[in-house]
């Protein structure tokens, strides 16, 4: 089980979001990234929450800075629409790129990118909103825009198109600290056999226990560590106690 720190970025700041809506500035993302590296995070996700909306990208600088002294994998997302955008992000030091809005608008994009950069570098980012008991809809533009696309169908389609990993964020749970949407996770993992990262809702160590029973490869944590409610060390210890494979740090 990979324990992954997620940094949501707005302009040059790390922000706290709720339901993917940026709420307030937390601080300098590079300081937080370095801290999580030294505390044993297995991976970092940098997600620009406004890039796709306003067609701009402040991520390059942040990622470049981070790659100077952080030696774990980075996944970077927000506003990536083309091979050129992807190249710029990879040249800044990203290992994987996360695609959401642009993939919905151009259903061939995942195929094109995975052919050029390899599946292992392409993360399909899904922002899922519950519409009824066992059904979720994919949203774009940071949870602002519905698409009519069913989450499970979308995951399957992109697995066939060459996505290498799925970052599954529950919009309903994101920023609430109320736990992951386990039904959502289960419905995707039972349909698609790709590595899956569960995002949105982590609030207590019990959430690790709940998610450990699902076929999840990584848990994504944001607020709980940004605000020092729980540290990475205790999360990793909990995972170890549960018998999960944890990086020998």
């Amino acid at each position: 089980m990979r324990i992954i720190a997620r940094l949501d970025i707005k302009n040059f700041n790390l922000i706290k979001s709720r339901n993917l809506e940026g709420l307030k500035v937390v601080g300098n993302p590079n300081l937080y990234a370095s801290k999580y590296y030294s505390e044993g995070a297995d991976e970092l996700i940098f997600m620009d929450l406004v890039a796709s909306l306003y067609n701009r990208n402040s991520l390059y600088e942040i990622v470049k800075q981070a790659s100077k002294n952080i030696f774990i994998p980075f996944t970077v997302g927000g506003g990536i629409r083309s091979i050129d955008d992807a190249l710029k992000i990879f040249d800044s030091g990203a290992d994987k790129i996360a695609i959401n809005t642009a993939a919905i608008k151009d259903p061939n994009l995942v195929k094109v990118l995975s052919k050029r950069f390899g599946s292992q570098a392409i993360v399909l980012s899904i922002e899922a909103k519950k519409i009824n008991e066992k059904k979720w809809e994919a949203y774009i533009e940071c949870g602002r825009q519905d698409t009519g696309v069913d989450v499970v169908d979308w995951a399957k389609k992109n697995a066939d198109n060459g996505a290498g990993e799925i970052l599954l964020t529950s919009i309903d749970q994101e920023g609430t600290s109320k736990g992951f949407d386990c039904d959502l996770i289960e419905s995707v993992t039972s349909a698609v056999n790709l590595p899956l990262l569960a995002s949105g809702g982590f609030g207590s160590l019990n959430d690790i226990e709940k998610v450990s029973k699902l076929n999840v490869d990584g848990v994504v944590i944001a607020d709980a560590i940004h605000f020092n409610k729980i540290n990475l060390h205790s999360i990793k210890n909990k995972a170890k106690e549960l018998g999960l494979k944890v990086r020998n740090f």
């Binding site: 297995d42 599946s119 292992q120 290498g164 993992t189 056999n193 590595p195």
Partner: peptide
Amino acid sequence: SPKFKIPHIDWEE
């Protein structure tokens, strides 16, 4: 096993 996934992405000893 459903836990066997490709690509293989993980930290391994």
